[in-house]
Structures are given as structure tokens and as C-alpha cells.
């Protein structure tokens, strides 16, 4: 069963129409070959999780979808159009938050709407909803320097959600949160996704998170990476952590991932960069 999974490049396709299509994507930075060959299709309104060993090119793949960097080969298209540059249809939450220290929490969050020339009052109105949902109420006028890591991360999430992109690209969005806050955020993100017709691509290090939230889990292999497994999580939403079948999926993904992490570590040790 596991071996079968790992060698099947395309298991069950999403029944929705394709939103993001990556075709033989390669990416190298000088002599570092980060992504070897990634081909996948992410359907409209699908929630896809990407998991893989550290340094295998997950962030890089998100940046390629976002249009920040040019791939060294292959193409990525969103809505049938080849990606050449970033655009407000794709919102990104960065692994490192990237807040603007000279803007208050509220102004960081309204930035997207400000750039899109939405009147200030309306922008604040829309931001407040996400400020409430991310538990940042009362911190609207604080500057990022005074926030904890977890709060910064929530500002970054609220900032991307407020201008309502169709596609959300999340790079380890819960990495700096405590379990409690994380659970709230996961629930809200799930609700948002169920309500708001978003396509979500989320990079994570936690198999539990991936399996709990996503329709599909893409496992990236060790660098130079490609997709080594594409696991469809065939369970209705919203899911609960204590579901037995969820734990089975978790074991399945963990097995593939551990093998890749082992391979990645032994490669690193044999040929240190």
C-alpha cells in the first residue's frame, strides 16, 4: 500500500476544475538544485497541504506560484494563465511574517486594501473582522515590535485574508503559535475555506495539521525534490482530531515522509553543501 502510494504520481484527481497547474517545474539557485521536477494540478477550491524535509524547496514552490521568482524550467499557470508576476489573486503568508514595523497592526492589515484604493473606512471595517477572528482585538494600534511571535504570525495571516485573494499560499502559517491558538486558527481557516470558495496551498511541517485540514497532502522528496506522494484525504469536513481514519492517514503520510527525511539527512551528511 505504501510503496504503491509512493510510486503513483497521480492518484485520484480532484473533480473540480483545475486552478493551479504546475508542469515539470524546475528551480535551481546557482549550483543548488532546489526543485527537480514538480508536476501537479490543484483544483478550484481545493485545500492542498505540502509537506517535506527541511530545505527541499517548499517555500520556493510557493514563491513560484505567487510569481515572485521565475522558474528555471517548466510552467505554472493559475486560472489557465501562465504566472509571470505576483498579483492580488494570490495572497501569501510568509514563513517569516514580513510585517512592516512602521505600520500599526491595523495598518499592516489594511495595507492590501489601501493599495487597491479601497476607502479607508471600508478597509478598516473589513480588517476588523479578521482582527477579531485572529484574536488581535485591542492590539490594533500596537506596532509589530511590541508583539510576540505568535501575534505577529496572526497579523500576517489577517493581512493576507483581508484583501480576499482567490488563492491563499500559506508558508507554515501556524509555526509560531501555541497549541491552543493554533487550534482556533485552524478551525477558523477551515470555516473560511468552506464558506469562501478559496483555493488554499499550505506548507506545513506537521502531518497532523496537514491531514486534519487538507483534501490532499503532497509529500515533497529530498532535494532536488519532486512529489513523491500525493495522498487524498477522503474524509468529510469539518474533521475532528480523534477520528480513527484520520489517524490512519496520518500514519500513512508519516511513513512516506520519514523515509524522505532519512534520505535527505543521509544525502546532506554524505555531501554537505
Amino acid at each position: 500500500m505504501l510503496a504503491n502510494l509512493a510510486t503513483t504520481p497521480f492518484p485520484r484527481m480532484a473533480n473540480a476544475k483545475p486552478k493551479i497547474v504546475a508542469d515539470k517545474v524546475r528551480m535551481s539557485f546557482g549550483r543548488v538544485n532546489a526543485i527537480e521536477d514538480v508536476t501537479c494540478t490543484i483544483g478550484e477550491q481545493e485545500f492542498v497541504s505540502i509537506i517535506g524535509p527541511s530545505g527541499c524547496g517548499k517555500s520556493t514552490f510557493l514563491y513560484l506560484i505567487a510569481g515572485f521568482e521565475k522558474s528555471s524550467g517548466g510552467t505554472i499557470s493559475v486560472n489557465g494563465t501562465t504566472v509571470t508576476r505576483p498579483g492580488p489573486d494570490r495572497g501569501v503568508v510568509f514563513q517569516e511574517f514580513v510585517l512592516f514595523p512602521w505600520r500599526t497592526v491595523l495598518r499592516n492589515i489594511t495595507l492590501g486594501l489601501e493599495i487597491q484604493k479601497v476607502p479607508r473606512r471600508e478597509a478598516e471595517e473589513r480588517a476588523r473582522k479578521w482582527i477579531r477572528l485572529t484574536g488581535l482585538s485591542g492590539f490594533e494600534d500596537a506596532y509589530p515590535a511590541t508583539l510576540s511571535g505568535g501575534m505577529k504570525q496572526r497579523v500576517a495571516i489577517a493581512r493576507a485574508l483581508t484583501y480576499e485573494p482567490e488563492v491563499l499560499l500559506l508558508d507554515e502559517p501556524f509555526g509560531a503559535l501555541d497549541v491552543q491558538t493554533k487550534n482556533y486558527m485552524i478551525r477558523d481557516l477551515q470555516n473560511l475555506w468552506i464558506e469562501a470558495n478559496k483555493t488554499i496551498v499550505m506548507v506545513t511541517h506537521s502531518v497532523e495539521e496537514a491531514v486534519l485540514m487538507a483534501d490532499r497532502v503532497l509529500v515533497f522528496g529530498a532535494r532536488p525534490s519532486s512529489i513523491v506522494a500525493d495522498v487524498r484525504i477522503d474524509l468529510p469536513h469539518p474533521r475532528t482530531v480523534d477520528d480513527r481514519r484520520l489517524r490512519e492517514y496520518q500514519a500513512e503520510v508519516t511513513a512516506v515522509l520519514s523515509a524522505e527525511v532519512d534520505r535527505s539527512m543521509s544525502l546532506e551528511r554524505a555531501h554537505p553543501a
Partner: peptide, 14 residues
């Protein structure tokens, strides 16, 4: 100025 902070606003349509 980090590339990423420019990316943030570019992805907002700046």
C-alpha cells in the same frame, strides 16, 4: 530592504 517585504506589496497589486 528585504526582497520579501517588496513581494508582500507586489502580491497586493502594488
Amino acid at each position: 530592504v528585504s526582497r520579501q517585504s517588496v513581494w508582500v506589496v507586489r502580491s497586493m497589486g502594488a
